[in-house]
Structures are given as structure tokens and as C-alpha cells.
Design a protein around this nucleic acid. Structure first.
Length: 424
RNA sequence: GUGGGCGUAGUUCAGCCUGGUUAGAAUGUCAGAUUGUGGCUCUGAAGGUCGUGGGUUCGAAUCCCGUCGCCCACCCCA
């Protein structure tokens, strides 16, 4: 094979793009209902932006970024997640001066992380994400969770869990970190090698460890919710109240911390029992300090990211089907040069009238064209030969019933026979 | 970064252990089964430097070594 797509990247072939488009359309309809407007930001950003926002001790930044120097000597990075760029845009364009809240989303945003690919994990994947700026109220947290949940349920999901936790604000998080660290220190020798390092650098991360021996230790570890300040606690309780009010089931998960540094208070994930291990479909939370962190005023915000590839994989794995794209309304074939010319002309006229139509560009026989029509699931077929041209009358075949009806070789006549469009 | 599995027609795979005539199947593609009509069936055709380089051997898809690639799991995350 001469060339292959780079490791960890995937093509979306013409045959499968309709699945993407179906999900995209659903997302656009849903975000519109919630009042979010799309934003598009560059695929590349200054590396510095991610160091500041995602956090320079995180795995994403430390070992997974596609970073390079451009010809002007600038350090540039392919975005590893969607929030940083959106926040940069928010600050750069002074959007904080507009009426708050500002609700925005990005769709099909390519994100890049240099990792070993596996099921549900790629080096380039595409995200849909939402950011709600300038809304400090707990209802905002519930609003974005509700938006994500709506999309999943619209796709037929009934087997998802919303996991929720609060990691506190900068003021109270340190209380918890000290408590957690003190607790973990007791078991230092029993922790895995990675966790002993985590213990020093970012103790919260130990809670995420999947090693059995560490799990045993963390199971008894202090919970963030017992240490966060009263404001943070109240905030979390209100989020829960709003979720309950709209019937969204959730589960508190004291082990949920997430790997991006900018989160404050609410963090959440929407997960399923994956065949493999990549069960997180959606992850997000509140990031009240981030806008200021990258040069804006103090503006609270909350949002999430959702991987499209992983979502499609989930739909596949759990047998949730996506409707097939509408069939071609009509195929028109000519038998000789004059017939082909007429077929070409009628095809165009049908398209002008809003129908989907096609004709033969390969030079197939009548039989072969019929086969083609059957396979491509066209709704109607018209074949134009000498007879049709001399009489001006042709037979339109209904491919589903096999019946033929004659009509004048005109768009009006054809439309009269085939009725409405397939995509309506 | 660590560990495991696998590279043979467009696709999914068999053959490899126990080296030996023109490397198979299914599916897909194309053509045909009397004159201008699909789905089923039947027939035929095209399609492979057996990932790649080297070694062993009279002889390698098959055995050995290197290399590249893919997949899966850990880690992390969407």
C-alpha cells in the first residue's frame, strides 16, 4: 500500500458520512433549542495558551500535544481540547462586555493528542462541546448537563450514567488536598509507582488510578464533598436539585476528578459500560477561574466536550441504529445517444424541481442499470429509448412495487407520477 | 511510555503448527443466462510482488532474525 492515513487518524468514507451528519444535525437542532450559537476557532493555537489553561502538569500537556515551531519561530500546538481556544476567543474579542450569559458551542472540532490509539481513542478525533460564559448559578451547570443528556436520549440512549462530583474552589480545594495527602501518606508503600509520583505532584489524580491495590486504598479515602466549603457544597446541592427537577438521573462519584486543571466546583462525566475501556462519552465541568487565567476579567463558565467518534462507536456497540439516508428519487437512463441526452436533460429538470435524480455515466446496459437502481435503492426508474423518443411517452417504474405507469416525457408528467420527494 | 495479538484478493478470512504442482473461500465488482427492465438463482471474468528486507533450504505464504504497519489493553482522556 502506497500511503496510509497517519496512525490514529481515520477517514470518514462517503458510505458512512451520513451517520456523522445525522448526529451533527441532531446536535445543531438541540443546541438551537437551548440558545447556543456556534463558534469556530483555529485548529492551531499558541502553545502557551494550553500551558496556561489545561495545565502544565497534566498528561495532556506534558506528553500528548502536537507541538511544533512555525517558520517564524513561534511555538504552535494543534489543539488538544476545545475549551482553551474558545476561551481565548471570548477574551480576545471582548465578548465579556456583551450581555451575559454567552452560550456557544463548537462542532466537529478536530482535536489532537499524541497517544497510543485503541478502541475509542484516536490521535485525531472530533469534538462537540459547549461553553456557557458568565453564569455563576448552579442552574447553568445543570443546563449544560441537560443539553448533553438530551442529545444522548434523542439518540436512543437509556443505558448512560451521569457521574457528578465537586472538586471545590481554589480556596477549599487545598483543604481537601492536604487531607487526602495525609491519608494517602499512610499507605505510601502500598501505592503503585505512578501513584507515589502523583502523591507529590497532584494527589487528586490518585483517585483516578485503576490499579486494584490503589483502588482499595482510595475507596476509604476522604471525599471531596466532605471538605469543600459551604458555598461549594451548596452549589453542588443546587445542581443536584435542578437535575432532579428535570428528571435527569445522576450518581455522585467521589473518585471523579478529571485530568484538566482548569475545573472548579462541578465536574461530571456521562459514561456507559463499554466493551473496551473507553466508556466516557462526555466530560466537563465548571471553570470559573479560566477566563481570568488567560487574560480576561473574572467570568465564571461551565461546559463540556463530547467525542463524536466515541459517540458513534457507542451507538454501534449498543446496537442503536441511525436512520438510513433518503433514497434517490429517480434514475433516468437513455439507451442511445438521443435517449441519453433526453435523460440528462430530464435529470437536471427534476433536480431543479427539488428532487434527487441521477443518470448513467458509465455506459451500462439496460439490465445493468436496473440492477444498479435496485442496489442503490432508487425509488423510481425511467428508461428512454427510441420508442419513448418517437412517442414522447415513457414508463416510470416504481422499484418497490415493480409496477410501471406511462407518462409524457416531461418533468411535470414525471412528478405527477412519483409524487413527493424521498427526503420529505 | 509499558504489555499482548495480528499483517494473505476491494472487504472478512482459510492455508502456516507437520515447507513441495498454476495460493483458496465468502462477499463485493464486472459480464452473461435469446430480442429494451432490478431484487432470488446459475455461469463466467477480473482482482494477490502472501507488509517489507535478509537468512535457512534443492524448494518458503509456511521455519528463523530484523524492520515497518495495524489492532487490543495499561496509562490518560472524548
Amino acid at each position: 500500500m502506497a500511503y496510509q492515513a497517519p496512525k490514529g487518524t481515520r477517514d470518514v468514507t462517503p458510505a458512512e458520512s451520513y451517520r456523522w451528519q445525522y448526529v451533527e444535525n441532531l446536535i445543531r437542532r438541540t443546541t438551537a433549542k437551548y440558545g447556543f450559537l456556534e463558534a469556530r476557532t483555529p485548529v492551531i493555537e499558541h502553545t502557551e495558551l494550553f500551558l496556561r489553561s489545561v495545565g502544565d502538569t497534566t498528561d495532556v500537556v506534558q506528553k500528548e500535544m502536537y507541538t511544533f515551531q512555525d517558520k517564524g519561530g513561534r511555538s504552535i500546538t494543534l489543539k488538544p481540547e476545545g475549551t482553551a481556544g474558545t476561551v481565548r476567543m471570548f477574551v480576545e474579542h471582548g465578548l465579556f462586555s456583551e450581555t451575559m450569559p454567552l452560550k456557544t458551542y463548537y462542532l466537529n472540532c478536530p482535536v489532537f493528542r499524541y497517544e497510543r490509539p485503541q478502541a475509542g481513542r484516536l490521535r485525531e478525533h472530533h469534538q462537540f462541546g459547549v461553553e456557557l460564559f458568565g453564569a455563576p448559578q448552579p442552574s447553568a451547570d445543570a443546563e449544560v448537563i441537560s443539553l448533553a443528556y438530551d442529545i444522548f436520549t434523542s439518540l436512543g440512549a437509556t443505558d448512560l450514567t451521569v457521574k457528578l462530583n465537586s472538586i471545590g474552589c481554589p480556596k477549599c480545594r487545598s483543604n481537601y488536598q492536604t487531607a487526602l495527602k495525609a491519608y494517602l501518606e499512610q499507605y505510601r508503600d502500598e501505592l503503585c509507582e505512578d501513584c507515589r509520583i502523583r502523591l507529590e505532584k497532584n494527589p487528586l489524580r490518585v483517585l483516578d488510578c485503576k490499579v486494584e491495590s490503589c483502588k482499595k486504598i482510595t475507596a476509604m479515602a476522604p471525599h471531596t464533598m466532605d471538605y469543600v466549603c459551604n458555598e461549594c457544597k451548596a452549589h453542588m446541592h443546587e445542581v443536584q436539585g435542578y437535575l432532579s427537577a428535570v428528571g435527569i438521573p445522576f450518581e455522585m462519584d467521589p473518585m471523579l476528578v478529571r485530568g484538566l486543571d482548569y475545573y472548579t466546583r462541578t465536574v461530571f462525566e456521562i459514561v456507559y459500560d463499554a466493551a473496551g475501556a473507553q466508556g466516557t462519552l462526555c466530560g466537563g465541568g465548571r471553570y470559573d477561574g479560566l477566563v481570568k487565567q488567560i487574560g480576561g476579567p473574572e467570568v465564571p463558565a461551565v461546559g463540556f466536550g463530547l467525542g463524536i467518534e466515541r459517540l458513534l462507536l457507542y451507538l454501534d456497540q449498543t446496537g442503536k441504529s441511525i436512520p438510513e439516508p433518503p433514497a434517490m428519487d429517480m434514475l433516468i437512463f437513455g439507451m442511445d445517444d438521443a435517449g441519453k441526452n433526453k435523460a440528462f436533460q430530464l435529470t437536471k429538470a427534476l433536480r431543479d424541481a427539488g428532487y434527487s435524480a441521477d443518470t448513467d455515466h458509465v455506459g451500462r446496459s439496460v439490465k445493468a442499470n436496473m440492477k444498479y437502481a435496485g442496489k442503490s435503492k432508487a425509488r423510481f426508474v425511467l428508461i428512454i429509448g427510441e420508442n419513448e423518443l418517437t412517442t414522447g411517452i415513457g414508463n416510470v417504474k416504481n422499484m418497490e412495487t415493480g409496477e410501471q405507469e406511462s407518462t409524457a416525457l416531461s418533468v411535470e408528467g414525471i412528478i405527477n407520477l412519483i409524487g413527493g420527494k424521498g427526503n420529505e
